[in-house]
Design a protein around this nucleic acid. Structure first.
Lengths: 282, 282
DNA sequence: AGTGATCGATACCCGGCAGGTATCGATGCC
DNA sequence: GGCATCGATACCTGCCGGGTATCGATCACT
């Protein structure tokens, strides 16, 4: 199976419309129809049930959609990482580390410093992204390593090394009655119906239903809390970066947050290995 | 990047010889040279340093070798799993479960029975393989789920669910002096220099150096122990399947063995999900 | 040093296939 | 029933992947 065939099939399977898929791929519709037909014939499998009015995925088709996306990600990753490895020899960004914007405050500079001191260290680019985007970036090669936070981020499919565990604090507007307390329980926070937890976007970019405002990143979240529209329970390391109009109170029974460094299991390159080594020695 | 290009590059990178690689690929040498050249030009990266006498990988080349192998595995897996999903609708093997031959004795039949009772269960093929082969089979799609045993098998890159933890026993020839003891320590077993631990093949099929005979699977191992040529420390569930000419003694300080069910994180198909559900309910 | 063998690169040719346009046939909507 | 939509088919064209012949460089052997 060629990646061109896979790309074509994934486009059709996602659009469920040959015309739109062809447009997205920048080709005409007839070659696309033919390519899909050939793919089906070669596999000996019906991937799409199509009438002249509607296109639906068969069971086999939906398997190929999932697996094909993963395979295309892997191919893309191979290409990106190869390009990057070549740059590392001559010029700059040899390694890309991704982390959620606004998280892992003091850990990150320490890690970068420790790695830079390693012999043979290459240049590290830091890529900040929104919630839940790290996994995709790591899978398709736009990043080589990630700092993730259990239990929020899924580490499925990656090798990980634990770096740090910490409790969580409730972040509230300064002056809120609860800020006088020495510590809280989760029940105290969820009871604040006037300060609901904001809703995070899912991987597809849509927001779940429910009360609470929508927030895409740390900055938006802080803003919402300062405005008295939301509250949040965050890892205690966020205190170092809290705006003066916010206050933090420890939450005793909140789940412990573990910061881990994660990388694709097969890409044990020297550079990644060095960075992981530096991280575990912190 | 097309899979054809990747296959070509991987062949050359593994052989480090254009002629042999071309032979392996079933094409002539000139088109291969040209394809690699085109790939390098398109990526803007030198992958191979070649004189007219010798070919070596550059740093970028070795990255592409690793990543490319993973990507090719993913593409192959997509193809295999799609074919299998199509069969599941009509005929037989809709799911392939792989486990080490001779391991997970009573667990496996229970699991298969429990899954078969699920509504919508598909036919499950059981694939038995040698030591350390499971990961490859799971990655390239020849299997959909695996039973693995921590800490022996690496679960890197897979989703897992723990099924069972058990201690280990020393397996000795019947009548050996130590078989009279109620329990042993690791030191007792390693001290048996006349009964060394056998050597297992590595992933590439070669055996590490050292004392002890070579063994590829459970049957060979048992045979060697019965012959008085080796001893082994195995999960205690193996007792149920032990030949009468072998004896087992618990080893108190041996690491606990955890049986896990593992699957590729992206392939959350109905069938896999059902099997995992059945497994966790055992 | 000269000669032959080895090996990757280059030059050139050919056939197949990817992609384009035109059109058909089926289906749903007003 | 007429029309619009959408996928499939027919047919043409140009590119590119693959083949053979050959070159140039390097190493081994005498």
């Amino acid at each position: 199976m060629e990646t061109r065939e896979l790309r074509y099939f994934v486009a059709v399977a996602e659009e469920l419309h040959f015309g739109r898929a062809a447009q997205r791929l920048g080709i005409a519709q007839p070659p696309l129809s033919r390519a899909i037909g050939q793919l089906e014939r070669r596999l000996g499998v019906t991937l799409l049930d199509r009438t002249s009015r509607t296109v639906t995925l068969t069971e086999a088709g939906s398997v190929l959609l999932r697996e094909g996306q993963a395979a295309l990600d892997a191919v893309e990753a191979a290409e990106r990482r190869t390009r990057r490895a070549a740059l590392a020899a001559t010029g700059r960004p040899g390694l890309v580390l991704v982390t959620k914007a606004g998280a892992s405050g003091e850990l990150l500079p320490k890690l970068l410093e420790a790695y830079a001191a390693e012999p043979g260290a290459v240049a590290v680019d830091v890529l900040l992204c929104g919630i839940g985007e790290q996994e995709r970036l790591l899978r398709d090669g736009r990043a080589d390593v990630a700092l993730l936070h259990r239990p929020f981020d899924s580490t499925a499919g990656f090798d990980t090394e634990e770096l740090r565990a910490e409790g969580q604090v409730a972040v509230l507007p300064a002056g809120h009655p609860l800020t006088g307390r020495a510590h809280l329980r989760m029940a105290d926070v969820t009871a604040l119906s006037d300060l609901p937890t904001p809703r995070w976007p899912r991987t597809d970019g849509t927001y779940p239903d429910g009360p609470g405002p929508e927030a895409r990143d740390h900055a938006q979240l802080c803003q919402l809390i300062a405005l008295g529209r939301a509250s949040a329970v965050l890892p205690e390391s966020c205190r170092a970066y809290l705006r003066p109009d916010l206050a933090a109170v420890p939450v005793l029974d909140a789940p412990t947050v573990t910061t881990v460094i994660a990388w694709p299991p097969h890409s044990r390159s020297h550079a990644v290995a060095g960075l992981v080594r530096a991280a575990t020695r912190l």
